[in-house]
Amino acid sequence: MKDKKLGLKKLRPFFTLVDRRKKLHRELAGKNAELFERPSSAMIPYSSAVERMGEEGLPLEALSPRSQPAIGFRQLWSEMKKELWASGVAAGNSG
């Protein structure tokens, strides 16, 4: 992925449905910085609460706000918001 020239605003990889009980998931999560140039430190763990969002038609914050996935999504948004504000995108600038 590091050889792709997609730019800061176009790609910010993160792991979702992470199951730390699985060896492959643990290994890949541990190599996050090696695999991606600008990885997110947020990881969204596997959870039935995430699956229920679609079934219930409700956001995770309403279904299970204190769950690990909800915490992970808040962390991801916090990272994205900081970058957007720093780049001027959130302020209405084009880049």
Rank of each mutant, 00 (worst) to 15 (best):
M1C: 10
K4P: 04
L6N: 08
L6G: 03
G7H: 12
K10P: 01
K10D: 11
K10W: 03
L11P: 04
P13Y: 07
P13T: 10
F14L: 15
T16Q: 05
T16H: 03
T16V: 13
T16L: 06
L17F: 08
L17K: 13
V18N: 04
D19A: 09
R20S: 07
R21F: 11
K22V: 13
K23V: 09
K23H: 13
L24E: 07
H25C: 14
E27W: 05
L28K: 02
A29Q: 07
A29Y: 04
A29H: 06
K31P: 06
N32M: 13
N32S: 09
N32V: 06
A33Y: 04
A33M: 05
E34L: 11
L35Q: 04
F36Y: 12
R38N: 15
R38Q: 15
P39N: 09
S40P: 11
S40W: 08
S41Y: 12
S41M: 14
A42H: 14
M43Q: 12
M43G: 08
M43W: 06
Y46K: 15
S48T: 14
S48I: 08
A49E: 14
A49Q: 14
A49P: 09
A49D: 15
V50Q: 06
V50P: 05
E51G: 13
E51I: 04
R52E: 15
M53D: 10
G54R: 10
G54D: 09
E55K: 14
E55D: 14
E55F: 04
E55A: 15
E56K: 15
E56A: 14
P59M: 01
L60Q: 14
E61F: 02
A62G: 03
A62W: 09
P65N: 04
P65W: 04
R66G: 06
R66D: 14
S67Q: 03
A70R: 07
F73A: 02
R74K: 14
R74D: 08
Q75F: 00
Q75H: 09
L76F: 00
L76W: 03
S78K: 07
E79F: 00
M80P: 02
K81E: 09
W85V: 13
G88S: 05
G88M: 00
V89I: 07
A91D: 08
N93C: 05
N93K: 10
N93A: 10
N93L: 08
S94L: 02
S94E: 12
S94T: 09
